[in-house]
Amino acid sequence: MPEIVKLNVGGAVNAALARALDEMPETLLYGEDVALPGGVFGVTRGLQKRFGDRVFDTPISETAMLGAAVGAASFGRRPIVEIMWIDFSLVAFDQIVNQAANVRYVSEGRTTAPLTIRTQQGNAPGACAQHSQNLEALLLHVPGIRVAMPRTPQDSYDVLLAAIASDDPTVVIENRTLYAGSKEAVEIGGPVQPIGGHRRRRTGSDATVVCWGAITAKVLDAVDRLEGEGVSVDVIEAVWLNPFDTEVVLESAARTGRLLVVHEAARTGGFGAEVLARVAESGVPLRTAPRRLGLADSRIPSAPQLAAALLPQTNDVETALRELVAGGAA
């Protein structure tokens, strides 16, 4: 029975995990510090107590964690593995890219890997270069892996459940700066949604912004500032990046004629480049050259004022939108 509860992102993730463990007896939940301590961000608190040995702690062995997920998934389990920071997935990339992504395809579907990797990424003030990266594009370059980046409590709940229910290896990328955010009304217990989909956060006719992840909040702030000046912007938050809702972007870009993509990940080779390429290939006519904002191609320094100079800020989004709208003036 669907019900409405007040949850922050951490609570929403916890609720989704609890429901999955409750309703899908084949699920397993494991990772470093997730069981007894309840996770370094407290997101998995109470789950081991409730679900017993299907929730457990592992050694600091990401390769074994993910390889074991591939193996257990092929024998009917549905593992949900927490990789504490996406940066740590790099020590186990073989298991994601060469193993999980290949299983279904090369076996002609005889073997599958219905596993979910829950991880989180992004810069937070003071974080070091090895705890700040946004690596979704690495995963999006790998056919066979599904990728989602929910942000709000409701999406964190819905997307995680959809990912767990999906029969493909799926990476759900969260953001630690959001876990303890303010509580919002979240509908829990409703039908599990299919994977895919976007959220239209603002409706407008002067420009289209496509964005994903925590930086969406900055986009919305910038758009709301311009709203007061009579500039209206269509904001499409791509909660799912694979599958990506290309059609909705094309429809919006065709209508507004101006396109900006914003992500926290590095510009070069970022998924924003792919979005612009899809729009260019579609032949949708734009009134002015499209833009993208992302991390200036750089490593990420620990000092907050240095990192802020490299990562897109609300003002950068606002300026880019102003230029875009001025550039395509009729």
Partner: peptide, 9 residues
């Protein structure tokens, strides 16, 4: 490291 490394790096 002029603030690039920080506490952990």
């Amino acid at each position: 490291n002029g603030g690039r490394g920080g506490s952990a790096h």
